[in-house]
Simulated scan of single mutants.
Amino acid sequence: MTDSALVTGGAQGLGAAIVRALFAQGCRVAIGDLDVDGAAALAAELDPSGERIFAQPLDVREEAAFAAAYEAMAQRWGEPQTLVNNAVMTVARPVLEIPPDEFDQVMAVNVRGTFVGSQVFGRRFKAAGYGRIVNIASLAAQNGGSATGAHYAASKGAIITLTKVFARDLAPFGVTVNAIAPGPLDLPSVRRIVPEDRLAAMVGTIPVGQLGDPAYVAELVCLLAAERSGFTTGATWDVNGGLYMR
């Protein structure tokens, strides 16, 4: 297991599940989030001593924020080994009704955030000769699903492409970069976006017959963050209950 990891958007939802899984496997974790109170509450729940986990204020759109997070981790624990780009903005809106400014906002968080984080941490991982970057993409990027917004789907498609570019450039330096593309997960955010009747219909289309447990994704993050995953890079891992097969 990796020694220390930054999880962006880690205060709640899928990010919190990833934080919990990494921590349970012995990893030291920085919870990067604009919701500092939420991140601090999760950190205090998991480790009241604060020795193995802490909340890090993080605006993923800002290069300086990632640099500050890296330095905070390095001062506490030594050089970080893993970055999980999970922070996300989602607005469920029909494609013809998306204001251009809203499109830009979603892309700034989802795409710019992944790019900037991977660049800041990637440079340092390259210099160290080791690192793991795990990006959270989406099934929506693969099947053109627009239930969570076309700007969300487009941003996740860009993340899959960025994963490949960073993976190719960093592979010679002991750094792997992979993406995970979850399908519908059983999260409060999903239940807020999708009406109950549509949710039931959605579940009916999933071959395994249920929404995904966020823990399924979190456990895969742990695997891709491990040293033993050094021969896996540039891949997009599907966790979708069989909705998209290839």
Rank of each mutant, 00 (worst) to 15 (best):
Y152E: 12
G157F: 13
E51N: 06
F231Y: 13
D33G: 11
M73P: 01
I31C: 12
N110H: 00
D37L: 10
Q81A: 02
D213F: 14
L211S: 10
Y216D: 00
I53H: 05
V29A: 02
V106R: 02
S49L: 15
D186W: 13
N143M: 15
R20L: 04
A141E: 01
A16L: 02
L224G: 04
D47G: 10
N86F: 00
A158Y: 09
L220E: 04
A137I: 15
R112W: 08
Q25F: 07
Q75C: 05
L96Y: 06
G129A: 07
P57Q: 13
A16I: 04
D47E: 11
A201I: 03
R123H: 09
P188L: 11
G122A: 06
R61Y: 04
I98R: 05
R228F: 08
G131A: 05
T205I: 07
R246W: 09
D37S: 12
A218Q: 12
N135L: 12
F115R: 07
G183T: 03
L42K: 13
E196Y: 12
A158R: 08
E62N: 11
F231A: 11
Y152D: 08
L139S: 01
V88D: 02
L223S: 10
V194A: 08
E219P: 08
L220K: 12
E51I: 00
A225N: 06
N110R: 01
G10N: 01
G234M: 13
L83A: 05
A44L: 11
R76A: 08
A5H: 09
M107F: 15
G131T: 01
L162I: 13
A153M: 13
S229W: 13
T90F: 02
P207G: 09
L224K: 11
A17T: 04
L42I: 06
A154C: 11
V177Y: 03
N135G: 02
Q75S: 12
A215D: 14
R76N: 07
L185I: 08
G149Q: 07
E62F: 03
L6F: 13
E71F: 00
S49Q: 15
T232K: 06
R168E: 07
T232Q: 06
F66I: 06
A127L: 14
L6C: 13
L14F: 02
V95W: 12
A68N: 04
N135K: 09
P94F: 11
F125T: 00
G234S: 13
M245D: 00
L6D: 05
A127C: 10
G212W: 07
V239I: 15
G230W: 03
V194D: 05
A226K: 07
P207C: 05
A108Q: 03
Y130E: 02
Q12E: 14
T233R: 06
D104F: 03
A150C: 10
M73Q: 08
A226S: 15
E227L: 05
S138F: 10
A30N: 10
N240F: 04
V36K: 15
A92C: 00
A65Y: 01
E63F: 08
A179L: 10
N85Q: 09
R112P: 01
R28N: 11
A64L: 09
T148W: 14
D3T: 13
Y130A: 10
G122I: 00
